Computed example of a mutant assay.
Amino acid sequence: MNDRLRIAHSPCPNDTFVFHAWTAGLLPGCPPPTVTLADIDVTNGMAERGELDVLKISYAALPYVLDKYALLPTGGALGHGCGPLVLTRQACAPADLAGRVVAIPTERSTAYLLFRFWAQQAWPGAQVRTVVLPFHEIMPAVRDGVVDAGLVIHEARFTYHTYGLHCLVDLGQAWEGRTGLPIPLGAIVGRRSLGAERLAQITAAIRASVRHAWADPDASRAYVRQHAQEMAPDVLEGHIGLYVNPYTEDLGVGGLAAVRTMLDLAAAAGLVPPVRADALAPPTPANPVPAA
């Protein structure tokens, strides 16, 4: 990896924790890349435009970028008990929200796909009304009655009580109850034009960065906190513990099955374009980069 790679991921604690060792030059033989920190909706757009070499994107955005990028089997976010929540100002039944306005962070997200899967069962035949708001504005908007409910992710699992809000449904629990599979949240993709050998090297660098982070968590602590400025230390640690797990080190058979299942269900519901099975194959020198 002689040429300096350009990568982008979110400033969320799980991403800064995972990528710190590589981007800080702590891995022998793995030159640090040039890093852009941006929210997931921004990195989704970057990937669709083919702007950088390696990006963290939502799995929901994967069908739109597989012509340019290959899915890498490490560094991503999947897991159990880490799904998005639908929050309301007052306790209510799902039927009470039929036809109401729900704030969402973006339509190109696993959270939105899981919300649509749930809404189809909770409100059969009812119109789903959503409005896109920046993530940090959603809980205040629900609290203040600007919207009827909010779809939230990440650290909101730990903090929504401080806004006086109620959890109407844990969409991750709904997904796991339906499929028995982990929840696919964030994917790492690499530009196909780099070639299978280079992508395999990048995969090895990210995996080494994950292992370094686990072996020496203090090394990244200041960097992680720097980019999680308003997050309490216990929330920060809980965030990392929830979203950085064995699926981060290696997607594996179970992780890939979760991704395949979610994308197939979303395509069947007309929410994303269909994806060929071989388009998700991990690139290795022995397994040339498949065409999407």
Rank of each mutant, 00 (worst) to 15 (best):
Q121A: 14
T110S: 10
V146N: 01
Q120C: 08
A141V: 06
V146L: 05
A103I: 10
A98I: 02
A122I: 07
F117I: 02
Q90E: 13
C92W: 01
A77D: 08
D144Q: 15
Y163A: 13
Q173C: 06
L78M: 12
A119M: 09
A149C: 13
L72E: 03
A70S: 13
T106S: 08
Y163T: 12
F158P: 05
H80M: 03
L78D: 11
T74K: 03
D144G: 06
G99D: 02
D148L: 09
H154E: 05
A98M: 05
P84A: 03
I104C: 04
A122D: 07
E107H: 15
E155N: 14
A95P: 01
P94M: 06
A156P: 01
L171C: 05
D96M: 10
V142K: 08
V86L: 04
L114W: 12
G150C: 03
E155Y: 14
T88Q: 00
D96L: 07
G76D: 09
H166S: 01
G150I: 06
I138R: 11
G83C: 07
E137T: 11
T88D: 00
T110H: 03
P73E: 01
R157P: 03
T110W: 00
A174N: 08
G76C: 10
A95E: 12
L151R: 04
V132N: 00
G81P: 04
I153K: 00
L171K: 06
V101N: 11
M139S: 14
E155M: 12
L151Y: 03
P94D: 09
C92L: 08
M139E: 10
W118H: 06
Y160Q: 09
Q90F: 05
R89V: 01
A91C: 03
H161C: 03
L78I: 08
G79S: 06
G76S: 12
V147G: 09
